[in-house]
């Protein structure tokens, strides 16, 4: 009996790889729980507003899950760097660059969905944690103003934002894997490019030109039309995924 030759499709191999990665990277879930615990801690110290004088002090402490989201984003960024950095391992099983890339992206998308789900339940979780501590006698909530559509918005926005960060980190990680020797030069070139772009932008567009992080944030976060927002997000994701693929396409597997 000779060894049988197999010719399975790339997608079937990619799917198998996706399941395998999800399973073998389960420690990431442990890390998520740890980081989200930290996020919940910071959520209780989110922000405070208040007024007062020598007679009267009114403070409103906002318990907001924004820190939780930030910690979750940190988590997905770390995972994305991990996937893009350690690319040799999977090739010793059945893999090529396409299946490796596809399965990485698929796993990151699952992680982003998990973040979205945890954000949807963050309100009740915070309420539960506050209740267990018995230290929040005047606990109010403005979650009552949220309808089902708001929860859906919360899920969609947090999932896509997390995915955007993950895709960005993955792209940077692939660049690092592929062009290790050009990392320093590339970083310097990128910074110079940003500076040049901002100078040109201010010169021709005016002082309102803003490509800083605030400007990037506004580009997505201030968009109130869901269709336009989806176009922006999916376009950005497409660009990042496309660039990542171009970078990984001819990546060699070598020590």
């Amino acid at each position: 009996m000779n060894s049988i030759i197999h010719k399975d499709s790339q997608m079937s191999v990619a799917f198998e790889q996706f399941k395998d990665k999800l399973y073998h990277n389960s420690f990431a879930f442990f890390q998520l729980i740890a980081l989200q615990a930290l996020g919940y801690l910071f959520s209780f110290s989110s922000s405070m507003t208040g007024i007062g004088d020598q007679h009267f002090m009114l403070s409103i402490r906002h318990i907001s899950p924004i820190p939780l989201f930030i910690m979750s984003v940190i988590w997905i960024v770390v995972q994305a760097f991990g996937f893009s950095g350690e690319k040799r391992r999977e090739y010793y099983m059945v893999s090529n660059n396409f299946t490796a890339y596809f399965s990485d992206i698929a796993v990151l998308e699952i992680y982003a969905v998990i973040i979205g789900i945890t954000m949807v339940f963050s309100g009740p979780m915070l309420q539960l944690l506050a209740g267990l501590s018995s230290g929040y006698p005047n606990l109010g909530t403005t979650y009552d103003s949220m309808t089902a559509l708001h929860y859906l918005s919360l899920f969609i926005t947090t999932t896509f934002y997390a995915l955007l960060f993950g895709a960005g980190a993955y792209f940077l990680g692939i660049l690092r894997s592929r062009y290790q020797s050009f990392l320093v030069i590339g970083s310097i070139a990128f910074i110079l490019l940003l500076i040049t772009w901002s100078l040109l932008g201010i010169r021709f567009i005016g002082p309102g030109f803003n490509i800083g992080t605030a400007g990037v944030k506004q580009f997505y976060v201030q968009e109130t039309s869901i269709m336009l927002w989806l176009i922006k997000i999916i376009g950005s994701l497409g660009a990042l995924y496309g660039l990542s693929w171009l970078a990984i396409k001819n990546l060699e597997v070598n020590r």
């Binding site: 399975d8 191999v13 990277n25 391992r89 010793y92 090529n96 396409f98 299946t99 001819n250 020590r255």
Partner: peptide
């Protein structure tokens, strides 16, 4: 190179192999 058919039908083991 990067051929999935080749990958399915070739098994390489070497000292530098890494695992999860």
């Amino acid at each position: 190179f990067q051929n999935i058919i080749a990958a399915q039908n070739v098994m390489l083991t070497e000292d530098g192999m890494s695992f999860y």
